[in-house]
Write a protein that binds this DNA or RNA. Structure first.
Lengths: 109, 109
DNA sequence: CAGACAATATATATTTTTATATAATATTTT
DNA sequence: AAAATATTATATAAAAATATATATTGTCTG
C-alpha cells in the first residue's frame, strides 16, 4: 500500500473529491455494464440495448451521463451513434473490479 | 483489458451489482478519506477526527456504515475503539485510485 | 422532394436514496 | 458517579434514479 499519510489534508481532500466523482459515475449497475461492454468494443446504442436488455430511454440517459462527464466518446455513422470509452482512468478502475468480481473461481480467461 | 464479453448477462449483472455495491460505499468523500487513513494504520475515532477534521458524530456515522458493510473492523482498547480495514477488495480499489489521483505529478513517494 | 420509418436523444414528473446536522443516548474506564 | 469516547435517532435537505412521453436527426422510398 502506498503511503498517503504525508499528504496534507487539503491535497487529500481534493484527490478524494476527484476519485469519488469518478466512483459515483461507476456506482450504477447499468452504467457499469455499459462501460464493461465498451471496454471490449466500440458499440452503437442498438447493440448495447440488445446485449444488456436495457430499455432505450434509460440507456440513452445513462449514456448521456457518461458522455457529459467524459467517460465515453461518440462517433456518428449514418443513423447509428457509436460509443467508446474515453477515459483511461475509468478503464483502469474497471480492470481492478474485473479482477475482484469477475475473475474469481479459477476462471483464467 | 480482460475479455468479459463471453459472460452471460445474468452473471455479469450479478458481478456488476456486487461491484457497484462496493463503489457506492467508496463514493463518499469522508468515507474515502477515512479508508485512506486506515489503509496506513489502525486508528481510533479521536485520531481520525483530528487528522481529517470531521465532526465526531459524522465520523461515527460513516464509520458505522463502513462497519455494517464489513469494510472496516474494530478492536476496543480501554476507552478507545480502533478501526482498521477489513476488506481486501476495498484496499485494492483504493490502491488503484491512489495511482490515478494521488501519485501523479512526479511524486514518487 | 415529401412522407414514413428507424435510431437516438431529451424533457419532465415522480419516487427513492443518500447526505447532513443536531440532539440524545450508550459504554467503558477511572 | 464522572469523564471521555463513541453510537444511535431523528428531522431535514439534496441528489439520484426511474418511467413515460416527446423530440430530433438521418435515411430511404415513391
Amino acid at each position: 500500500m502506498p503511503d498517503t499519510t504525508g499528504l496534507d489534508i487539503e491535497t487529500m481532500r481534493a484527490a478524494a473529491g476527484e476519485a469519488t466523482g469518478l466512483l459515483r459515475l461507476l456506482a450504477h449497475e447499468d452504467r457499469m455494464l455499459l462501460l464493461c461492454q465498451l471496454s471490449q468494443a466500440e458499440l452503437c446504442v442498438g447493440e448495447l440495448e440488445e446485449r444488456l436488455g436495457i430499455h432505450q430511454p434509460s440507456l440513452s440517459q445513462q449514456l448521456g451521463v457518461l458522455r457529459r462527464e467524459g467517460l465515453v466518446e461518440t462517433r456518428r455513422e449514418g443513423k447509428h451513434i457509436y460509443y467508446r470509452i474515453g477515459d483511461p482512468r475509468a478503464l483502469q478502475v474497471l480492470e481492478t473490479l474485473y479482477g475482484l468480481f469477475c475473475k474469481q473461481n479459477g476462471d483464467t480467461r
